[in-house]
Amino acid sequence: MATARRQSAADIGVLHSHTLPVFLILASVAIGVAALLPLIQSSSATDTAGDVRALESQRTDWRARLRALELEVAGMGSLSRIEAEAAARFRMGTPKELHYIGIDAPAPEARKIPSRYLPEEAENGSDSPSLVEDVLDWLTP
């Protein structure tokens, strides 16, 4: 009987302890934060995915612009344009007589095909592995 009374008094002590509310609040906050984690993670992933899409779109746009510029350059170098410019700006025309002059110098090198039309060189490891990949590599022999 005396033991029971002592136990009950102890129980009452725990319930009336000053640390209980703090503990409960902390537990609630912890649970709340834990519940928010997936939401934060999901939100962050959505943001990142959105950024990736935006960057991809930007890359596509820049590539389109670059290709358009390449062809604009090609158009600027077209024979018809050069001829028209030569005639209009420099008043040049077809020669009536041709004179050949022998010179003691090596012939100019043949024009090389612009590198943009040649096969691209293979990229060498431009994408560095992520931290997770590093950890996985370390874990797996």
Binding site: A64, R67, A74
Partner: peptide, 14 residues
């Protein structure tokens, strides 16, 4: 489609 000196005769743009 390039000519022998690399001048484009037909090219593509996006």
């Amino acid at each position: 489609l390039l000519d022998r000196n690399g001048y484009p005769l037909a090219g593509s743009e996006d």
